[in-house]
Design a protein around this nucleic acid. Sequence first.
DNA 1: TTGAAAGCGATACCAG
DNA 2: CTGGTATCGCTTTCAA
Lengths: 337, 337
Amino acid sequence: MATIYEVSELAGVSLATVSRVVNGTAKVRQSTKDKVEAAMRELGYRPNTIAQSLASNRSNSVGILVPELIGPFYGALLSRIESLFRAAGKHVIIAAGHSDAELERDSIEFLQSRHCDALILHVESVSDDYLVALAESECQFALINRRVAAISERCITLDNRLGGFLASEHLLALGHRNIGYISGPMWKQDAKERYAGHQQALMDFGVKENQHAFFEGDFQETSGVAGLQYFIEQRIPISALVCANDEMAAGALTAAHDLGISVPEQLSIVGFDNTNFSHYTFPKLTTIDYPIAEIGAMAARWVLAHVYQKPGEPLVSSFQPKLVQRHSTFAARRESA
Amino acid sequence: MATIYEVSELAGVSLATVSRVVNGTAKVRQSTKDKVEAAMRELGYRPNTIAQSLASNRSNSVGILVPELIGPFYGALLSRIESLFRAAGKHVIIAAGHSDAELERDSIEFLQSRHCDALILHVESVSDDYLVALAESECQFALINRRVAAISERCITLDNRLGGFLASEHLLALGHRNIGYISGPMWKQDAKERYAGHQQALMDFGVKENQHAFFEGDFQETSGVAGLQYFIEQRIPISALVCANDEMAAGALTAAHDLGISVPEQLSIVGFDNTNFSHYTFPKLTTIDYPIAEIGAMAARWVLAHVYQKPGEPLVSSFQPKLVQRHSTFAARRESA
DNA sequence: TTGAAAGCGATACCAG
DNA sequence: CTGGTATCGCTTTCAA
């Protein structure tokens, strides 16, 4: 591979000049520029990104840390982020944190050791303090799906509370009064907020929450089946069920089939996230749309604007979820029936 | 961040010596080594990977090119590959080719410009010749899910033909004789092979293929619904349906529900891939397991062995799919009934 | 076993 | 507008 040195020689100009035409960092006379470009073409020159990074102290790479690479959720995020950065000539380095504090810290260090210009973090286990400290070091990063007050200008989130509210409001409006709730792990911020939204909706409709109609799951399918089984065994009377994500909703749906409970006639179910499989279920899942790809895109724009000085459309830091009504929810039977 | 220079000064040794203890490239007296390590610890030294790359001409990064980041399939692949390389101190740079020849080539160039030490390619549109030429350049890469004779030592594949065979054999053994087939785009190698396996099974059972019971889909859910609709409209009599992937099977399942066809009683359906949502469907999908994560792991091992001289377990280049029997298939009704 | 010094391929500052 | 040159942080001969 040709180096900048060979190009400068062939074009009969200095190293510095070649660098200028490559980067467009300063004015160069058109005729010189032409010579240089001809030389570059002739040699098939392509700048060595590694050398560029070392000299410029910028790696043109951004690190992305998500909980999992597998599963229906983060793919959409990564996909969007990758294509945006790709178009900007940056590349993404991807790591998985597996919702484990130590692994998350490791991953961040790993990404930093790779000299990423910026990070996009979707972390759940690491403490707020850690993130604040990280922000105080010279590390540039955007935080997804988590709001930390001290660094809120870097946070891009979904209004999870509103999402939880919408899910339950939908059911309440349909006439349901006995609503079960299968939550995510309550140590996770989003799980907590979604649940808070649920409670808010109950309150707004003047419905008293049945403390027993709550089951703490783990966002996995299996806890969806466990949750529904629990409610049935405990004879908790419910005509509707909100699950804090689609996986658990799918699990509950399966359990309902197995228990001979027909959905939505006997039991309405609503999920959360609108993952790609939510319309593969039967009946198709009513759920809350989580615009994860948009959020990823926004994080990418944040980086482009703050780190690469490429301002684009204005940044928005909070997104609104909305209800996607499909076939797993149904009007409650009249009590008089 | 401390540099190697500062470490050498603090430890009272030369740059070269520090480099030696960092890389273990040569014997260093234990006492010197201790001094150096103490100094490194004191300064929190971490080598600058960019400088290492420039000097050593190795980037410790491997590029992964897959068709899509989104969707249920490649996440599993990426996940496994990432964790294997991470453990080996390498990082992965990920790009998407979107099944488009130009984009695939672009992506490969992009990855090369990033000076990846090796690539792992899952490409479908680029020609065999291109890949052979690429192999003849100095580029190191492993090819996933595609067999190119001239470079077969770099190929890691699933026996798609066997998979197609197993799917249809299962149905035939269940007594089905009118079997519809919804294939992937026939220009894709895997789609062709799966179909060939299907034909083989029919032949083995002495069943004549109904040419009209074939529908060419595009591996997307929508073509699954289109396919089943087509068979029904054309009044092609089928009691079973094999779909060349799970997405299309899920689509066919949905269509069956909508058309009032009960699965599996009136129609058995088998998918292919065993994607993570295949047990969210109702009934749960019988399918062919595609050990995509294992295949990814093998590709990673190939790279570790061939590029980084870290031999591990022996390499295998072809994987066997197997049938995963769930609830979407059922014995054919006796003809006499 | 250790040190000195020459790169690796760019960037960027300082003159001219 | 262009050239010279120091520099980025590390690896890798070559000698000692």
